[in-house]
Structure formats: structure tokens, C-alpha cells
Design a binder for these strands. Structure first.
Lengths: 100, 100
DNA sequence: GAAAGTACTTTGTTTGTCAAAGTTAATGGA
DNA sequence: TCCATTAACTTTGACAAACAAAGTACTTTC
């Protein structure tokens, strides 16, 4: 009886980081404030989770201006996309085993 | 754009507790030492995660003797089974959204 | 009688999580 | 020109969670 969670990624163990990745894999890029509202987080909390993902090189930042306002957009790296896919695959395997 | 993690259960956020539940949903009951070996944990660590699940009433204990040796078996409650099912459903929804 | 097994609890360190407050730099309004 | 506001953080500090290691109590096996 094996439990197939070898591909489980600690960076995605936290619910908020799981949500962030989920949004960003589906959306290509998302800005700080929209993400903050979507997930209903304080900016400090969001920033720290984004930073954790950046540290793993799963996330990258693009800073620009929209009109005269600064705008920070986040997007997943290829590394992040691959890691997230592996992680979801691990979860899916777990679910499949349960259904047998 | 919704992110469907409303049914996400904090008790299963931790990888080890996810594994414990996974084993026990599939196995009906499992004893302390076998679980310890299967998951390669120290007994203190395993005991504390089991206790966390007991506290949520997701897990129950049966103490007995096998021959003259004490044997502690763990099994999930109906509440635990239902909660785990909901949790996996939430994860599955997340995965499905990713695949679209 | 010593060592080892079972199933913990306790202790103490480290890591994680979070809100709240502080920061920097720019903009818009009175 | 000054004040408030917005954006996007960083810092602080409190609290909770995770973990290994050691301790405990009781029993059995050598």
C-alpha cells in the first residue's frame, strides 16, 4: 500500500499559495490589488505569500505604470507552472486511489 | 473568476494528516507502529497529528492487546470520512478548473 | 536484571502565519 | 503648497504549528 505523495510540493501546502497559483496559472498575469481583493487578504499577507513563491522561482513580477499609476503584475514562471502541475497530479493520484 | 476552495478543510492542509486520512479511509483501521513505519515519522510527531485529527473527531482509537502486547489501532469516524470526501472534492474542482 | 518494545507526553527549538503599523514614492485635490 | 490617498511593499510582533529528542510507564524478552 503506497501513498503517492512524493510529488507533493511544500510551497503549495498553504491554502492561500494554492489559490494564488491557481489564479495565475489560469490567468497569465494578475495585478497585486486585484489579487488582494479576489482572495480577500491584507496587503502584507499577500505580499509575503507572493514573496515565498518568488523565492522558489515559481513567480515573477512585472512593474509598470498604467497611466501615471504604478502597477505590479505577477505571473507564474515555467518552473512554477511545471511544479504546480506535478503537485496537482500528486493530489489527483491521491483522489483516484480513494475512488477505487 | 471564482476559486472554488470553500470546502477546503484546514485539518487536512498538512501533508502528513492528508496521508494519514488517505491510509485510514482506504484501510478501515491501522495500528500506530505500522503507520509510523509507513509514513516514516517519529512517534511523537505521529501521535500529535493523530491527536489533532481526534480533536476534530475525524479519528478514533481502539486499544487492545495482541497476545500480551498493547496494540493501538486508529480508524476514521463517519464525520472524518465525510470531511475528507468534501476536501478531496474541493481539490478535484480546483484540478478540473485548471484543465479547462 | 538489562535491553527493548509500545504508545505516548513533555520540552524546546524552529518555522509559519497573520494583522497592524510603518515606509517610500507618486498623485489628486483643497 | 500641503494634505490625503493610492500602490506596493517591509517590518514588527504575536501567536500557532511542526518537529526531533528526551522522558515516562509499563511490559516482555533475552
Amino acid at each position: 500500500m503506497k501513498i503517492s505523495l512524493d510529488q507533493f510540493d511544500k510551497a503549495f501546502e498553504n491554502r492561500i499559495r494554492l489559490q494564488i497559483m491557481s489564479v495565475l496559472v489560469a490567468n497569465e498575469s494578475y495585478d497585486f490589488n486585484s489579487l488582494k481583493e479576489l482572495l480577500d487578504l491584507t496587503d502584507g499577507n499577500l505580499a509575503s505569500h507572493l514573496k515565498a513563491l518568488e523565492k522558489e522561482e515559481y513567480m515573477q513580477v512585472q512593474k509598470s505604470f498604467i497611466g501615471r499609476k504604478p502597477n505590479t503584475r505577477y505571473s507564474v514562471t515555467e518552473k512554477g507552472r511545471a511544479a504546480f502541475k506535478r503537485h496537482l497530479q500528486a493530489l489527483e493520484n491521491l483522489i483516484k486511489q480513494q475512488k477505487k
